[in-house]
Amino acid sequence: MSENTAKKPRWVFVMEPERCIDCEACMVACSVENEVPLGEHRNWIAKVEKGAFPDLSIAFLPENCHHCANPPCERVCPTGATYRREDGLVLIDYDRCIGCKYCMMACPYDARYVNEEKKAVDKCTFCVHRLDEGLPPACVETCVGGARHFGDLNDPNSEVSKLLATHESYRLYEEAGTEPAIYYIRS
């Protein structure tokens, strides 16, 4: 494949809930990296707890903005502040955002928060500033369990492509038609 026919990247997260230990290192890392105000956060661990003593199970699902290919947040934004970049990242133009919070209503994943310092709505950016420098997202880099993987789905040799090729996976609230970019490996 020559340079100019190379496909645009499709950045995705592939999560391995089986490897997540709910340590929340990803949350702290993200808060520091992205200067997320105290009390808010861009990523979290969803939990599915089942059973009764002593037959218990609990699954940890690492989550952040799903950078939907069909993002309802972008669709409803009245100012165009929320936009989708060429490579699929759903980002916010903080100057343009007036803080109507309509996107927060529209996001099925509750990925957004009001950033009182920026006076705008905010969320996970897939660490776009790091990505543009060729660095992995902060939460991926520090993930103690190795549960978070990030990469280009359009590159068949990427770690994420390989993981998805060899494992069954699912996405959250797929029925919402959001085409989320976070895949979960079924254990």
């Binding site: 929340e24 702290v28 890392a29 880099e141 520090t142 103690v144």
Partner: peptide
């Protein structure tokens, strides 16, 4: 090995 736990990340 390139990773810090939550407490390590919170060192700042």
């Amino acid at each position: 090995r390139g990773m810090l736990c939550p407490r390590g990340q919170a060192g700042v």
